[in-house]
Protein backbone atom coordinates (compact mmCIF):
# COMPACT_ATOMS: atom_id res chain seq x y z
CA UNK A 1 0.00 0.00 0.00
CA UNK A 2 2.78 2.36 1.03
CA UNK A 3 4.51 1.68 -2.24
CA UNK A 4 1.33 2.43 -4.16
CA UNK A 5 1.01 5.78 -2.39
CA UNK A 6 4.60 6.59 -3.28
CA UNK A 7 3.97 5.53 -6.85
CA UNK A 8 0.85 7.72 -6.93
CA UNK A 9 2.85 10.69 -5.70
CA UNK A 10 5.52 9.98 -8.22
CA UNK A 11 2.96 9.89 -11.04
CA UNK A 12 1.36 13.10 -9.81
CA UNK A 13 4.79 14.67 -9.56
CA UNK A 14 5.60 13.69 -13.13
CA UNK A 15 2.23 14.98 -14.37
CA UNK A 16 2.75 18.32 -12.65
CA UNK A 17 6.29 18.45 -13.96
CA UNK A 18 5.15 18.33 -17.58
CA UNK A 19 3.52 21.79 -17.71
CA UNK A 20 6.45 23.16 -15.74
CA UNK A 21 8.79 21.71 -18.31
CA UNK A 22 6.74 23.23 -21.07
CA UNK A 23 6.92 26.64 -19.48
CA UNK A 24 10.61 26.14 -19.18
CA UNK A 25 10.84 25.24 -22.86
CA UNK A 26 8.89 28.31 -23.90
CA UNK A 27 11.15 30.54 -21.87
CA UNK A 28 14.40 29.04 -23.00
CA UNK A 29 16.96 31.84 -23.13
CA UNK A 30 18.00 32.04 -26.75
CA UNK A 31 20.72 34.45 -25.77
CA UNK A 32 22.43 32.21 -23.24
CA UNK A 33 26.08 31.30 -23.67
CA UNK A 34 25.39 27.56 -24.04
CA UNK A 35 22.84 28.20 -26.77
CA UNK A 36 25.24 30.59 -28.49
CA UNK A 37 27.91 27.88 -28.66
CA UNK A 38 25.49 25.61 -30.49
CA UNK A 39 23.45 28.00 -32.62
CA UNK A 40 26.24 30.28 -33.85
CA UNK A 41 27.63 27.32 -35.79
CA UNK A 42 24.76 27.43 -38.25
CA UNK A 43 23.97 29.92 -40.94
CA UNK A 44 20.41 31.16 -41.31
CA UNK A 45 19.30 30.83 -44.90
CA UNK A 46 16.47 33.35 -44.76
CA UNK A 47 18.73 35.88 -46.45
CA UNK A 48 19.56 37.86 -43.31
CA UNK A 49 23.23 36.92 -43.55
CA UNK A 50 23.32 36.07 -39.84
CA UNK A 51 23.76 32.85 -37.92
CA UNK A 52 20.97 31.12 -36.03
CA UNK A 53 22.08 32.70 -32.77
CA UNK A 54 21.81 36.27 -34.05
CA UNK A 55 18.77 35.95 -36.31
CA UNK A 56 15.66 37.27 -34.60
CA UNK A 57 13.01 34.56 -34.05
CA UNK A 58 10.32 37.25 -33.90
CA UNK A 59 10.82 38.25 -37.51
CA UNK A 60 12.17 35.07 -39.09
CA UNK A 61 10.13 31.87 -39.04
CA UNK A 62 12.98 29.79 -40.30
CA UNK A 63 15.19 30.51 -37.32
CA UNK A 64 12.23 30.11 -34.97
CA UNK A 65 11.81 26.48 -35.95
CA UNK A 66 15.52 25.88 -36.20
CA UNK A 67 16.08 27.25 -32.71
CA UNK A 68 13.31 25.04 -31.35
CA UNK A 69 14.93 21.97 -32.95
CA UNK A 70 18.28 22.93 -31.45
CA UNK A 71 16.75 23.27 -27.99
CA UNK A 72 15.10 19.86 -28.35
CA UNK A 73 18.42 18.29 -29.26
CA UNK A 74 20.19 20.03 -26.41
CA UNK A 75 17.56 18.68 -24.05
CA UNK A 76 18.26 15.19 -25.35
CA UNK A 77 21.78 15.75 -24.13
CA UNK A 78 23.41 16.20 -27.52
CA UNK A 79 26.52 18.32 -27.42
CA UNK A 80 27.38 20.96 -30.00
CA UNK A 81 29.58 18.65 -32.07
CA UNK A 82 26.90 15.99 -32.30
CA UNK A 83 24.31 18.57 -33.35
CA UNK A 84 26.77 19.93 -35.88
CA UNK A 85 27.40 16.48 -37.37
CA UNK A 86 23.66 15.90 -37.56
CA UNK A 87 23.04 19.01 -39.65
CA UNK A 88 26.15 18.62 -41.80
CA UNK A 89 24.94 15.11 -42.70
CA UNK A 90 21.63 16.50 -43.88
CA UNK A 91 22.56 19.82 -45.49
CA UNK A 92 26.27 19.50 -46.09
CA UNK A 93 29.00 21.92 -45.12
CA UNK A 94 27.03 24.81 -46.57
CA UNK A 95 24.99 25.19 -43.42
CA UNK A 96 28.00 26.02 -41.26
CA UNK A 97 29.19 29.57 -40.59
CA UNK A 98 32.83 28.50 -40.85
CA UNK A 99 34.43 25.79 -42.98
CA UNK A 100 35.15 22.36 -41.48
CA UNK A 101 38.64 21.70 -40.21
CA UNK A 102 39.08 18.68 -42.43
CA UNK A 103 39.47 17.80 -46.09
CA UNK A 104 39.83 20.63 -48.56
CA UNK A 105 38.33 23.16 -46.15
CA UNK A 106 41.30 22.69 -43.86
CA UNK A 107 43.21 24.79 -46.38
CA UNK A 108 41.08 27.77 -45.38
CA UNK A 109 42.36 27.52 -41.81
CA UNK A 110 45.96 26.58 -42.42
CA UNK A 111 47.04 28.50 -45.50
CA UNK A 112 47.28 31.95 -43.83
CA UNK A 113 49.49 30.59 -41.07
CA UNK A 114 51.54 28.51 -43.49
CA UNK A 115 52.05 31.60 -45.66
CA UNK A 116 53.09 33.72 -42.69
CA UNK A 117 55.40 30.93 -41.50
CA UNK A 118 57.11 30.55 -44.86
CA UNK A 119 57.35 34.29 -45.39
CA UNK A 120 58.67 34.65 -41.83
CA UNK A 121 61.38 32.06 -42.46
CA UNK A 122 62.23 33.82 -45.72
CA UNK A 123 62.41 37.14 -43.91
CA UNK A 124 64.75 35.67 -41.31
CA UNK A 125 67.16 34.46 -43.98
CA UNK A 126 66.99 37.73 -45.88
CA UNK A 127 67.78 39.79 -42.79
CA UNK A 128 70.61 37.38 -41.94
CA UNK A 129 71.97 37.84 -45.43
CA UNK A 130 71.83 41.61 -45.06
CA UNK A 131 73.57 41.40 -41.71
CA UNK A 132 76.26 39.14 -43.17
CA UNK A 133 76.79 41.52 -46.03
CA UNK A 134 77.63 44.09 -43.42
CA UNK A 135 79.78 41.78 -41.29
CA UNK A 136 83.23 41.95 -43.01
CA UNK A 137 83.75 45.66 -42.48
CA UNK A 138 82.11 45.72 -39.10
CA UNK A 139 84.24 47.50 -36.59
CA UNK A 140 83.61 47.91 -32.94
CA UNK A 141 80.98 50.54 -33.46
CA UNK A 142 79.37 52.12 -30.51
CA UNK A 143 75.87 50.89 -30.10
CA UNK A 144 73.41 53.69 -30.04
CA UNK A 145 71.42 53.80 -26.92
CA UNK A 146 67.79 54.82 -27.12
CA UNK A 147 68.30 57.71 -24.81
CA UNK A 148 71.26 58.88 -26.81
CA UNK A 149 69.24 58.56 -29.94
CA UNK A 150 66.40 60.68 -28.61
CA UNK A 151 68.90 63.19 -27.32
CA UNK A 152 70.55 63.25 -30.70
CA UNK A 153 67.26 63.90 -32.42
CA UNK A 154 66.36 66.67 -30.03
CA UNK A 155 69.78 68.19 -30.34
CA UNK A 156 69.59 68.20 -34.11
CA UNK A 157 66.12 69.74 -34.03
CA UNK A 158 67.38 72.43 -31.65
CA UNK A 159 70.32 73.14 -33.90
CA UNK A 160 67.96 73.25 -36.83
CA UNK A 161 65.77 75.72 -35.01
CA UNK A 162 68.69 77.95 -34.14
CA UNK A 163 69.89 77.74 -37.70
CA UNK A 164 66.49 78.86 -38.94
CA UNK A 165 66.56 81.78 -36.53
CA UNK A 166 69.86 83.10 -37.74
CA UNK A 167 69.90 82.11 -41.36
Amino acid sequence: MKNKVYLGFLILFVIFQTPLLRVHAAEFDYKSAEFKAVASQFRCTCGCGQDHFECDPNTCNETKEFKQDLVDMMKKGWDKDKIRDYYVNIYGEEILTAPEKSGFSLAAWTLPFAAIGIAGAGLFFVIRKWVKRKAPDETNETVQDIEEEVEGEILSSLIDEERKKYL
Binding site: S40, Q41, R43, D51, G92, E93, E94, L96, T97, A98, P99, E100, F104, S105, A108, W109, P112, F113
Partner: peptide, 20 residues
Protein backbone atom coordinates in the same frame (compact mmCIF):
# COMPACT_ATOMS: atom_id res chain seq x y z
CA UNK B 1 37.72 28.74 -54.34
CA UNK B 2 35.85 25.93 -52.65
CA UNK B 3 33.06 26.08 -55.18
CA UNK B 4 35.52 26.05 -58.07
CA UNK B 5 37.62 23.20 -56.70
CA UNK B 6 35.03 20.79 -55.32
CA UNK B 7 31.67 22.29 -56.15
CA UNK B 8 30.65 23.00 -52.56
CA UNK B 9 30.00 26.58 -51.57
CA UNK B 10 31.03 27.04 -47.97
CA UNK B 11 30.43 30.04 -45.78
CA UNK B 12 33.42 31.71 -44.22
CA UNK B 13 32.01 33.86 -41.47
CA UNK B 14 32.68 35.46 -38.17
CA UNK B 15 33.98 32.39 -36.25
CA UNK B 16 36.62 31.76 -38.91
CA UNK B 17 37.94 35.31 -39.01
CA UNK B 18 37.89 35.73 -35.25
CA UNK B 19 39.95 32.58 -34.81
CA UNK B 20 42.41 33.22 -37.62
Amino acid sequence: VSEAVRGTKVTVGLPFFNKV
